[in-house]
Design a protein around this nucleic acid. Structure first.
Lengths: 232, 232
DNA sequence: TTTGCGAAGGATGTCGACACTTTTGACGAA
DNA sequence: TTCGTCAAAAGTGTCGACATCCTTCGCAAA
């Protein structure tokens, strides 16, 4: 018997545990982008059988963190400008939609929680000026809550599970930082205002611009990195 | 060595074979919506072990055709008005985007093939007036090609693999038919014209309207079905 | 030296069996 | 009769092993 029937009981299985570890290892580059994945090796490393490991790999493929080809095994994805562009094209569209739906359907209580979250971000930002904390967790947390506010299960699944980690991977491995921190905060605040005013159209527009700005920021860093590689 | 390096060799595995069978069985209702799935039973039925079956189930979950809860098994999804609305919200947005991208990036050759496809649909439609063939395969085939024209791998994966079968399930089990057939064809033709003119904005708009019209059509049938059930 | 073939090694796909969990059903008490 | 408890059955998660496939390395021929 669960306390809340609406909350599905979550029995943590071995595959789940390992999944989180591998996910993080890929996102932060401990397992390098583009490297081949050996099932026996990973199974030994995490001290589990190949069965739950393959379950975890199936979910990693779902997050676009690895790519599998039949009888040939799995590779970690490689980060490319084209991939980033394609990813953010989707994000702009879907998060714009999520933002519009959130403006229309988000309960007042959740909106107030979102406002409180931004206040908390502001103080954190002041304390740890220039650090990447805000970009890493804070920004994504804001987006996360807006997405949940859309109340569309498919949308939530796509953005929070299937694309979320790949976005994180780009941001972490390309070292998001710089002057966009404070600007992003202002953009968040404007989006929140639009949601609070139940102005779905404006919230949609602002979110798209916010993501487009983020994309340009990462693209610049990726191009720099590429040029550095080419000249070397 | 493959003939064309761009085409990944596709070794058909046991899981793949079974996947297609179960997929179709769920889509056409042979395995009823909402029914529980027993791994041992399905394994016996298809004469395979549980390992490849679980692989297939993992992919079915990816297509949103089944829902799994840890230690409790899998169930076929249930078709609801809310689910349909949520699904088509996503479709409008993503296929609109795909259509815009197709207008911008689709090679001339592919556009001509698309025109030929519509001509073929027209003749088929005349021959089998009123039948549901067009809606089942033809309409989806048109959408399929437009999506491929977007050249965005994530978009293609989401629409052609993760949402495609669920859309089909709604359409098949709710028996798409009626006077929308010829209207849908006209809409397809208008979309194609916009794409051929490289007018991404218009193509986007037309595709959204086209999908919205399709959604309303199915919603009506689903509501009728629901009322019939309630009165019984 | 370079190219092509073939065998050895490793990896993936599949299988059957076991451990633990969930569900079902019977039994007994209120 | 109805409800709660408990045991049996079914099902899922995991394991180790085998079959098949891909990769790689060595060897021989051009």
């Amino acid at each position: 018997m669960t306390a809340h029937p609406s909350i599905a009981r979550q029995a943590i299985t071995a595959a789940d545990r390992v999944l989180l570890d591998i996910q993080q290892a890929i996102v932060d580059g401990t397992i390098p982008a583009g490297s081949k994945i050996s099932e026996p090796e990973l199974a030994r490393r995490f001290d589990i059988s190949r069965a739950p490991l393959r379950e975890a790999l199936a979910r990693l493929e779902r997050c676009h963190l690895i790519e599998r080809t039949p009888n040939a095994g799995a590779r970690v994805v490689t980060l490319t400008p084209q991939g980033l562009a394609a990813l953010y094209q989707i994000r702009e569209e879907l998060e714009g939609l999520a933002c519009r739906l959130a403006a229309e359907q988000m309960p007042e209580a959740e909106i107030q929680e979102l406002a409180a979250l931004l206040d908390q971000h502001l103080s954190t930002q002041r304390v740890r000026e220039g650090e990447s904390y805000y970009q890493e967790a804070g920004d994504l947390d804001f987006h996360y809550r807006v997405i949940l506010g859309s109340k569309n299960p498919y949308l939530i699944n796509m953005l929070c599970h299937e694309l979320y980690y790949l976005v994180r991977m780009y941001r972490v491995q390309l070292g998001m930082n710089g002057p966009r921190v404070s600007r992003a905060f202002d953009e968040h605040k404007a989006i929140l205002t639009a949601i609070a005013n139940r102005d779905g159209e404006l919230a949609d527009l602002l979110m798209r611009r916010h993501i487009a700005a983020s994309r340009r920021n990462i693209e610049n860093q990726l191009n720099e990195q590429q040029q550095k590689k080419d000249s070397a």
